[in-house]
Design a protein around this nucleic acid. Structure first.
Lengths: 210, 210
DNA sequence: TTTGCGTTGATATAAATTTCACAATACTCA
DNA sequence: TGAGTATTGTGAAATTTATATCAACGCAAA
């Protein structure tokens, strides 16, 4: 693999994560090898696109047996996981925060949610969905202690701006924003926005114009 | 506006939805007009891209005052909203289902969640987050009665395949999949997949490789 | 061995999306 | 008025992303 990792297209990285998810399922079903067209069908893509993604990460399969799932999973992990693991915090323990936490818990070894925060005393200082939930006022000390660079934001729209700013002040480098409030961050911070309504409206548009 | 709506790029449609979200906020703050660079900064895009999008939908601003927010919101609504409104159901009333429902409720006039479903008798036959929650066995009759073509899927991974298949049998035309299980659907069905872990892994990758 | 089938890997092509560059326009202020 | 400034709208170029095509390969069966 000669190319720098950072040259991988963003879309490919997203797909790598999804390939791995599917490959885990296949391993559980007892499969050891898989063809590009099988993977493609499961992802709703073309076989060519699968092969090209794998080409980009430098993985070679065999013409007769396709790809060795175990090796492929390992390589994807080498690329998208941090070697020493990365710690994530989640801020806002409403329905969405709890859903994400319990959905995520234990799914990935190299990526773990290490702490949760809320401003409601009823929720703090106890374990929720397996994660210790602190009061938001302790966020700075926990971030420093745990060395976690990534935060998931699931607070109320009203609090979003203020909390986001506070997190950046505490040294957060990557922010996954699930609130309905669009955020603006400095260039050196990575921000992923995802608004649930957006995808619903897109879908509604497509269904309508069919 | 001469061009067919279906010619709008998919990315533009997604952004239109987000523009409108931001514009609603601006209206609340008392703004009546907005420049492309203001909108761009709030969306983390370039001003040119904003202008291009608005050009594609046939909206013209003024060089001195920028765009009239009220008119722009109305035009976006005309494009992405269905004129007579569209009804959405949500299947799976766990944390995620409840989060989406309460988050969404009342946010859009033309798009409304009209019914929820679950298989847990504790949750069914009552109102949750303002939406009547039925048992999943009644899904067919409710879909027919309400004429709702779109479903949000927030059930457990184990149930995802079976429930999705059932929904398609009941005539659902668009499916928003929030489970961690990738789905395969016929060509005439619109499917939007969104996996929470994918965006987290992408973010972790970017933060790592910085 | 030889033929045929199905697969990978890779180059070339195409399509979609974004950015550049700048003309045209409207406003401000001297 | 007229120069200066800031904005929009848009054709063209650049970039990103996806698809088409095909040679090379490995295997199975005749």
């Amino acid at each position: 693999m000669k190319e720098k990792l950072s040259e991988l297209p963003g879309k490919t990285i997203e797909r790598l994560s999804q390939y791995r998810r599917i490959l885990y399922n296949s391993i559980r079903e007892g499969k050891t090898n898989i063809y590009s067209h099988e993977l493609a069908r499961m992802m709703n893509l073309t076989p060519v696109q699968v092969r090209r993604d794998l080409m980009l990460i430098g993985y070679s399969g065999s013409q007769s047996k396709g790809y060795v799932i175990k090796d492929l999973v390992a390589l994807i992990g080498k690329i998208i996981d941090s070697s020493d693991g990365q710690k994530v915090i989640i801020v806002g323990m409403g329905n969405l925060g709890r859903a994400i936490t319990s959905y995520f818990s234990g799914k990935r070894d190299k990526l773990s949610i290490v702490a949760a925060f809320d401003n409601d005393p009823q929720k703090t200082d106890r374990i929720i969905a397996g994660i210790p939930c602190h009061h938001i006022k302790d966020v700075q000390s926990v971030i420093e202690e745990e060395q976690s660079p990534i935060a998931i934001l699931t607070v109320s729209p009203e609090a979003a701006h203020e909390v986001a700013k506070h997190l950046l002040d505490c040294g957060i480098k990557g922010l996954l924003n699930y609130t309905s409030v669009p955020l603006t961050v400095p260039d050196d911070i990575y921000l992923e926005e995802y608004d649930i309504i957006t995808s619903l409206e897109k879908l509604a548009y497509l269904v309508k114009s069919k």
